[in-house]
């Protein structure tokens, strides 16, 4: 009972942070509008990339244009959700550099809650809008029957995927406690996950699949549940496959704790 109360309190506090973020952003309405539009248009270049490839090729590894678009829409949505909610981790190098993490440590709340609260990126609704547009097109153009199981699968994918990308941002932030140099390679896992996740992972071959199962579990939020969504598999348990992110997220949380303890012993 007490845990539930504490959790509810944390959620309430988080949304208090969110409202301050949104109100801050609203102070610059013109700039905000431009950024949202920019975000909307930016991901169109990826979309056109897919579109023009499919004007030349009718399918890739048996996936049709609509199927790939569905996949891309889902991954884009996962990534944008993570960016929106976990932007505090994504921009954490600045937080450490400016010494703002000290302030977080002198407040009686969990560090994760405060870092997440420090940045809520409203401009990402631009990208989400694009994901929704593609999704709407796919729903109208392809005859997939949206059974309750499929809707559940979709919801699980979005939740699990957002969590996976969020966890990757958290790993990046944890590394910031050790060094601020050369963390660019994390882009392979975050931006790369989004860019290459636009196609179902099996098109890249066996090795990439193995990596996406054993190292960073992209496959559990993309390839496997997608098989159920596209009617290539009838196994209803695939809907819950995205839960496989949980152990990965737990490991990332441990990395974070280790990073914080290192920060506390090494100073900034």
């Amino acid at each position: 009972m007490k845990t539930i109360q504490k959790l509810a309190d944390a959620v309430r506090l988080y949304f208090h942070y969110v409202s301050l973020n949104v109100r801050s952003a609203m102070q610059y309405k013109a700039s905000l509008l431009l950024m949202i539009t920019g975000q909307l248009l930016v991901s169109f270049s990826t979309f056109f990339g897919i579109h023009f490839m499919f004007m030349r090729f009718s399918h890739v590894k048996g996936y049709t244009y609509e199927e790939v678009l569905l996949c891309f829409a889902i991954v884009l949505m996962q990534f944008s959700l993570a960016e929106m909610f976990a932007r505090g981790f994504d921009t954490f190098s600045g937080t450490v550099r400016r010494g703002e993490f000290d302030r977080i440590l002198v407040r009686p709340r969990s560090t994760v809650l405060q870092v997440l609260g420090s940045r809520f990126e409203i401009t990402r609704i631009g990208r989400m809008a694009q994901a929704c547009l593609m999704f709407a097109y796919v729903v109208s153009a392809s005859p997939v029957a949206w059974t309750p199981l499929r809707v559940t699968t979709l919801a699980m994918m979005l939740l699990g995927g957002a969590m996976l990308f969020g966890a990757l941002f958290q790993v990046y932030a944890s590394l910031c406690f050790f060094t601020l140099d050369g963390l660019e390679f994390m882009n392979v896992l975050t931006d790369g996950g989004r860019e290459y996740g636009k196609y179902p992972l099996d098109i890249y071959g066996k090795r990439v699949m193995q990596f996406s199962i054993a190292v960073v579990p992209y496959a559990v939020v993309q390839y496997y549940p997608l098989q159920l969504l596209l009617g290539r598999s009838a196994n209803p348990w695939l809907a819950f496959c995205p839960l496989g992110v949980l152990p990965f997220a737990a490991i990332c949380q441990l990395c974070w704790r280790y990073g914080v303890s290192r920060y506390k012993s090494a100073g900034s």
């Binding site: 506090l13 208090h16 942070y17 301050l20 109100r23 801050s24 102070q27 010494g99 000290d102 302030r103």
Partner: peptide
Amino acid sequence: QRSQLWWDIPVIDSYELLRDIYA
């Protein structure tokens, strides 16, 4: 040298957040 107040919104809003942070 470092501010704990939110830059773009009224001071009182930062205070209300602190109220919730410290319960």
